[in-house]
Amino acid sequence: MMSSLLQKQNLTTEQLQLLASEMSKKQKSGGVAWLLWFFTGGIGGHRFYLGRIGTGVAMLLTLGGLGIWTLVDLFLMSGMIKSTNESIENEILSEIRLLSQAKANTEVAAGRE
């Protein structure tokens, strides 16, 4: 989380707006994740939603470890949601960095001509 904060300090206002816009589109909702856990927890619906496909399939095949895994997820859900959203934010920050580097390279190349 701290590295994400440091990365955001160096962003322009335009880049911060882009980050906020992309996060609003891509981040996972805690409410949706909890509803999926409640209604489809036994078959791993919440894990599929959070991008944890492998463990989602394992829960699907074992019916949530016969309910035990589903109960354990009750305590793990908040951390899974936070972790997933931090990963999404880091991906977006990487894309913004790549875009700004490409823009800078284009400006430098245009200045040479």
Rank of each mutant, 00 (worst) to 15 (best):
I92L: 07
Y49N: 06
I68A: 08
M2N: 11
A109G: 05
K26I: 00
K8T: 02
S100Q: 12
S83R: 15
G64C: 04
Q17H: 10
A58R: 12
L63I: 10
E89F: 01
S100F: 01
M80Y: 13
L11N: 01
G67S: 08
G31K: 09
R97L: 02
S4M: 11
K25E: 10
A58L: 15
T106W: 10
A20K: 06
K82A: 09
E95H: 05
M77F: 06
G65M: 04
R112S: 07
S4I: 12
G42P: 06
L11H: 00
L74A: 01
N105L: 14
M1A: 12
L16M: 07
L74H: 06
V32E: 09
W37N: 01
L66A: 08
Q17P: 00
E95K: 07
I53H: 11
V72G: 03
L50N: 05
A20N: 08
E89N: 01
L76K: 02
L76C: 04
I81W: 02
L63E: 05
A104V: 05
G30R: 00
Q27E: 15
F39Y: 04
L18Y: 13
Q7P: 04
E95F: 08
M80T: 00
G64A: 12
K103S: 11
G30V: 02
L74P: 03
L50Y: 08
E91L: 14
A20H: 06
M77D: 09
W69M: 06
S4Y: 06
S100R: 03
K8L: 05
L74E: 02
G56F: 02
L18T: 14
I68V: 13
T106Q: 13
G51C: 05
I81F: 14
Q101D: 13
M23R: 14
E91R: 15
I81V: 15
L35N: 05
Q17K: 08
S83D: 15
F48D: 00
K25F: 10
W69K: 01
Y49R: 09
N90Y: 06
L71T: 01
I43S: 03
A102C: 11
G30L: 13
W37M: 06
S24G: 09
L63D: 03
L60H: 01
A20I: 01
Q101T: 12
L50F: 00
S100T: 11
S87Q: 14
A104R: 15
I53G: 10
I43E: 06
E91K: 14
F48Q: 07
A20L: 04
F39K: 06
M59W: 07
S100C: 02
S4P: 02
A20T: 09
L36A: 08
W34T: 03
V57N: 05
I43C: 04
E113N: 15
L19Q: 07
G30E: 07
S83A: 15
Q27D: 13
G41W: 00
I81M: 01
T40G: 02
F39H: 03
M59A: 08
T70W: 00
S87M: 11
Q7C: 11
V57E: 02
G45F: 02
D73Y: 08
L98R: 07
V57P: 01
N105T: 03
K82N: 10
R112D: 03
G56A: 10
V72L: 13
H46I: 01
M59K: 13
S3Q: 10
E91Y: 10
G42H: 02
L6K: 08
V32S: 11
G56V: 00
L16I: 03
T106I: 09
M80Q: 11
A20S: 13
L99A: 13
